[in-house]
């Protein structure tokens, strides 16, 4: 059974209730259509159970399959430096079919980010290193495609692209 080799820390991007005993980690790729299917399901899960759940998103960009996956991941990380990780995360998934560099700059403007800072951070080696660390941690933890979920450190293998299969986590 695959388990998470790198525990969730303060450096992770999380939403929900940090005090809850349930930590759900998703390894995802912004250009992966299966992650696009999971996106509204996760949102629904957080709406319904946000008090009983901490949700963490980590980057797993399959860049050879998805040419915009890395620039999208970097955009979310750059937005995070201005306190808007989840806003960028959401807008990227909502516009998954149109992830060009120009459009991403447009998303940053929509979110009222400091554009010169965003443009600089978006290209920074530091953020690229962070995205690669996420990817490496995922590879070492047995992430075998996206999305892959871990509940409290154990890989969750029963997700089948239905809301029910995610809601089952809340009974575990």
């Amino acid at each position: 059974m695959a388990h998470l080799k790198n525990p969730v820390t303060q450096n992770d991007h999380s939403t929900g209730n940090p005090q809850s005993g349930r930590i759900l980690v998703e390894y995802g790729d912004y250009q992966c259509s299966h992650c696009g299917i999971a996106f509204p399901l996760i949102r629904k899960l957080l709406r319904q159970y946000g008090d009983d759940l901490l949700f963490v998103f980590r980057n797993f960009p399959l860049q050879e399959s998805h040419p915009a996956a890395v620039i999208a991941a970097l955009a979310a990380e750059a937005a995070a430096l201005q306190g808007k990780f989840w806003e960028m995360h959401d807008i990227l998934y909502e516009n998954q079919a149109e992830l060009s560099a120009d459009n991403i700059l447009g998303f940053a403007a929509t979110l009222h980010l400091d554009m010169s800072r965003f443009s600089q951070d978006w290209r920074s080696q530091q953020l690229l290193d962070r995205v690669e660390r996420d990817l490496e941690g995922g590879l070492r933890s047995g992430v075998n495609g996206t999305p892959t979920f871990f509940l409290n450190g154990e890989r969750y293998n029963d997700y089948d692209e239905t809301y029910q299969s995610l809601a089952m986590l809340m009974e575990a």
């Binding site: 960009p61 399959l62 860049q63 050879e64 399959s65 690669e132 990817l135 490496e136 590879l139 992430v143 075998n144 495609g145």
Partner: peptide, 13 residues
């Protein structure tokens, strides 16, 4: 294809 795509991203390691 998924398996090989994951390995493709593992090449650096």
């Amino acid at each position: 294809s998924d398996q090989l795509a994951v390995y493709n991203e593992s090449l650096k390691l």
